[in-house]
Design a protein around this nucleic acid. Structure first.
Lengths: 202, 202, 202, 202
DNA sequence: TATGAATGAGTCTTCATTCAT
DNA sequence: AATGAATGAAGACTCATTCAT
């Protein structure tokens, strides 16, 4: 039996902590999400948290990135698997608030976003993450331009930004009031937007 | 010589405090926007702030509402003054991040939004405010449907929500990285979206 | 019309403030009896209070003494008017908790008493006031010894202290729970005690 | 090696804090007994106090109850051990101000009492504790009635209240000025009162 | 005199972080 | 690796007192 723990153990504990962190934030808000509360949610002592993360800030950042990256990964999968005009829509489906879990994710990202305002370092990090989404959309749009599905005159990056903006906006509103955006409304909105994009000549 | 102070004095002081609050939030982030820091920004003692607001939470809420309402007022003006297809675009211009001041406002609203997550009372209040924007757009869309500029088959409220979502999304991205959205990009995005709306048949 | 106010105006305002102070203490407890609350009760500004009293401590002391002295005055009257064995009982009646007003007074004195603990200056002042009661009882006892109603062997001051102790004890208990001491119980207790005193040989 | 601390450690720390609290109150008065001062007395940081007590109010209540209960326990012992007519006197001795320690306790209870005025919740709690004393006296009086030492016509609870009232009154006066009540005076007073009680026919 | 806005030291309380066990 | 007691700086808030009007 080896003395030291596997790398995996360490990482999976960090993920477990991140999940507890998110649960607490959703329940109590970011302001009241103290380390003690998260430890209680985990069923462990605060010392554990500080053992796996040097500071609380690092813990929050890790948690946010984990949420973000999980969604990004699935969106990348959708990009890889999709074909034809449906591809973009399939990608957005992984980022939009369509069920309880994705609404929770939107809320979390909104909460973290608010924290980043006025904190240049965090804002830069957030912006870098956002770019991953945008570039992925841009890449697919470039693909679609090659097949003529999307007009070659459009700027893939800008169109990517536009799609992400619409996603973020819906996410933000659904975060405040999930009942204002039914899954059908969400899908219809995105679908119509993408349709118009693929029809657009300029 | 009047004994008591004028009502106006009291209210204008509250606005002055709200402006200082916003300045501090933009500079230091919401977490570090303590009452002491805001007092320093105002050039007064912390006691003053508590004299004009019972709690810090009330102060923040007032500040946010003030920012929101100022923009809403201008947007309503644009709705009243505008004519024809340009009307919707003119309205969005008052809410989009097009210059330093409006970018600051977007940042503030993003910061406050994050605070509301996990706080049902705040979320409800925020949602009520958001509805003001949406209803205003819906009203104008209804007008445009009467003149045939917009298809009568569209649901004004849903279309209002969609416009607001796009605005919020752009605002959110510009909050993180203003350079990613030039004023021209912003306008073009909004313009094209509204164009497609007015062309839309379903 | 003379410029300055009468001494009486000044004093009667101080009494008015003292009464408001007592009302607030009874309602909110001594800890929460701030100057602002008292001003509100008076229907005036805090400035007025500081005009008539240099400090809050002075205001509290004045209020307590006023309550105390009013009762003492009536007790002295009872001493002057009473005759024979009834005299002592009549005196105690002015100090005991027998109705709403006197229960309120007992509560106030209890509250002030608690404040004096750990404050040598206040304790000395309070002790001096208490002596007034005791000496009055002692004087009457001396009278009663002259007529043979009370044994000459008893120490008038000590007996005075004992009577006051019993009064204070009943007052203290009635302050906490007025229902535990019906007026009849109070009177019977005091009456029996004084009876035994007048019968006592040593 | 046990992971968690023993229950005893936690409770004994609470008692240690309570003792420090009392020392500070006696020295500085209740108003000036801040958490910082108590921490200084303990030789620890303020955080420790909040670790063992959720609020300052809880800390004060615990301290008062501890003082009260310690005396009550000894009084109950005296009730259990005593025989015949001496029993009641032995019980009162545990509650009366007869030496430095008991005078300190009387002062503390006086200080806490003052705090309770105007605070219904605290008053109710205090009244419940007082009843413990009274019931204990009543129980012993009932015993003595069975042996004919005390007249069966007397109401045990009322007589218990009367004894407690006298004790409280003496305690209250000794709190203000300990020199006014020598131990001999205290004992003689109580002794004579109890004597008269046991002689009483009605 | 009277006002009540302003002050700022002081209050309790929270909390991320450290550290002995 | 884990515990949770201890730290102490920072937090929001209170309040007696002052002072310009």
């Amino acid at each position: 039996m080896p003395r030291g723990r596997r790398k995996g153990d360490h990482d999976s504990k960090r993920e477990e902590i991140a999940d507890a962190t998110c649960k607490v934030i959703l329940r109590s808000g970011i302001e009241k999400s103290g380390i003690a509360e998260i430890a209680r949610e985990m069923g462990c002592s605060t010392g554990v948290l500080m053992h796996y993360f040097k500071t609380k800030a690092e813990m929050l950042l890790y948690s946010k990135n984990l949420m973000f990256d999980r969604a990004h990964e699935r969106m990348k999968q959708a990009a890889a698997n999709g074909h034809g005009p449906e591809r973009l829509l399939a990608m957005t489906r992984e980022l939009l608030p369509l069920d309880a879990a994705s609404i929770a994710r939107c809320r979390l990202l909104t909460a973290f976003m608010g924290l980043a305002i006025g904190n240049p370092a965090l804002m830069k990090l957030q912006d870098k993450r956002d770019l991953l989404h945008i570039k992925q959309f841009a890449a697919v749009i470039t693909d679609l331009q090659a097949t003529g599905t999307v007009s070659a005159k459009l700027d893939p990056m800008l169109e990517g930004r536009r799609i992400c903006a619409l996603i973020d906006g819906i996410a933000s509103q659904a975060a405040t009031n999930p009942r204002s955006w039914s899954p059908a409304d969400v899908e219809a909105t995105m679908s119509r937007y993408l349709q118009s994009l693929m029809t657009s000549a300029a």
